[in-house]
Nucleic acid binder design. Sequence first.
DNA 1: ACATTGACCTGAGAGC
DNA 2: TGCTCTCAGGTCAATG
Length: 266
Amino acid sequence: MPELPDVEIFRRYFDSTALHQKIIDIEFDTAAERILEDISLEQLKNELIDHQFEETRRHGKYFFVRLDNQNWLMLHFGMTGYFQYYKNEEEKPSHARLIVDFANDYHLAFSNTRKLGKVNVMDHYETYISEKGLGPDVMSDDFDFESFKDVLAGRRGMIKSALMNQEIMAGIGNIYSDEILFQAKIHPKTSVNNLTEKDLNQMFDATKEVMKTAIDKKVDTRQFPNSYIIPHRDEGEPCPNCHGEVKNIKVSGRSGYYCPNCQEKR
DNA sequence: ACATTGACCTGAGAGC
DNA sequence: TGCTCTCAGGTCAATG
């Protein structure tokens, strides 16, 4: 579930809780060793203990925080990750995989129920991004309409898959790709090479608009505009535009929702 | 090179 | 109630 807007909200939560405090210890759930991407538990301890967090960054769905030794801790949330900053043990999430203990008696838990997240430490986060082959962050100011057309050029797969491909552009996942396509009135299975200039323009605008709205509304879907499909992302729900039925469709193995009437197949 | 599919995980919810 | 089955959707490796 954590896509760009979710991770951005997590980042802001981290900024308002966990920065500039001495780390006195960490706790790691050894049953979740698989989430350690490229680092041993020993190394992780050495990187964190007696240090502190200084500033955060986000690229797509990837979260980075710089330590006072200038190294960066990377966290990826997978499908079920979130942060919880707490003092009392009873507030500790039941699937806390990594817990950072601060000198002020508070803790920051990285919860990751399904163990599909990742933890790593590196000296340059930009290098990590390029080694992963991640595309441009869709909310970056540099990512303009020309860049959008550029990264999609030469592609022949289905547009929903392309939007979700982190190597093409970073940040969009299954849920928000549905919203972008709904707002742009484009069928999820449309081939990228069949999209018109107008389609691309509508999709680019929708991408920026949807991401911004989700962040502004702090990812609380109850506050999303009535014109959004996300609160109706279920088979048979009424389309907020034409009041027809929302349908389920499988696109490259992923489950998408769309309105067949508003998003006609071409 | 690009596109698609299945595997990795666990818990919630459906169906019986 | 309780059991089994399916599904959720992040990435990556394997296959087409």
